[in-house]
Design a protein around this nucleic acid. Structure first.
Length: 190
DNA sequence: AGCACGATGCTCT
DNA sequence: GAGCATCGTGCTT
């Protein structure tokens, strides 16, 4: 089942938690690539100084102000594409960053794209799945597209770790320490 | 197995 | 012009 817009149009922390174990599906070069989501982070509103939307509406952040269930893809560090999913109502900017997947289908192609290296990392999974700027803004709830998310494995709370978000460096408190990162303790279990 | 750093280019001030 | 929601390499322990 493709996750409907109503799934994403909810509080971002709920969405980030419930995306753990969901199936990220990508059609790339005519092949189907599937990975179970094992790590996410929530970025919530202009008040969150770790969120890009702290700068308000800009050409880059505009997608986050739009309808839930669309992709927010951006480029960073000169090398890497980051894949996020817009959450909450229109005009409330927020998104969930997908930080890691466990490949379960199309493993060979993903491994080849990664030169045999792993897919645990936000820049790594986009490279493995061929997600770039052209996916920015696409509707992930639209049937027949090349990128969507399906209901997957239910992961119980005891297997999910919460902690501070990664790589924020100079972000001031309290945002630096907000436990808005979710990850599976041992992905081999799912 | 852990830390330090350079690569690399887009976004916003 | 500075900073950046990272990654891989190469060096140290």
């Amino acid at each position: 089942m493709i996750l409907p817009r109503s799934f994403y149009n909810r509080p971002t922390l709920i969405v980030a938690r419930e995306l753990i174990g969901a199936r990220l599906v990508r059609i790339s070069n005519g092949k189907k690539l599937v990975g179970l989501i094992t790590e996410t982070e929530a970025y919530i509103s202009e008040k969150d100084l770790a969120c890009h939307c702290k700068a308000g509406r800009t050409p880059r952040t505009q997608v986050m102000y739009g309808e839930a269930g669309h992709a927010y893809v951006y480029f960073t560090y000169g090398n890497h594409w980051m894949f996020n999913i817009v959450t909450e109502r229109v005009d409330f900017p927020a998104a969930v960053l997908i930080r890691a997947i466990q490949p379960i289908e199309g493993v060979e192609l993903m491994s080849e794209r990664r030169n045999g290296r792993d897919t645990f990392g936000p820049g790594k999974l986009t490279q493995a799945m061929g997600i770039t700027k052209s996916e920015n803004g696409v509707d992930l709830t639209e049937p027949g597209s090349s990128l969507w998310i399906e209901a997957g494995v239910k992961v119980q709370n005891s297997l999910v770790t919460k902690g501070p978000r990664v790589g924020l460096n100079k972000t001031p408190e309290p945002w630096l320490s907000k436990p808005w990162r979710f990850l599976v303790k041992d992905w081999k279990i799912i």
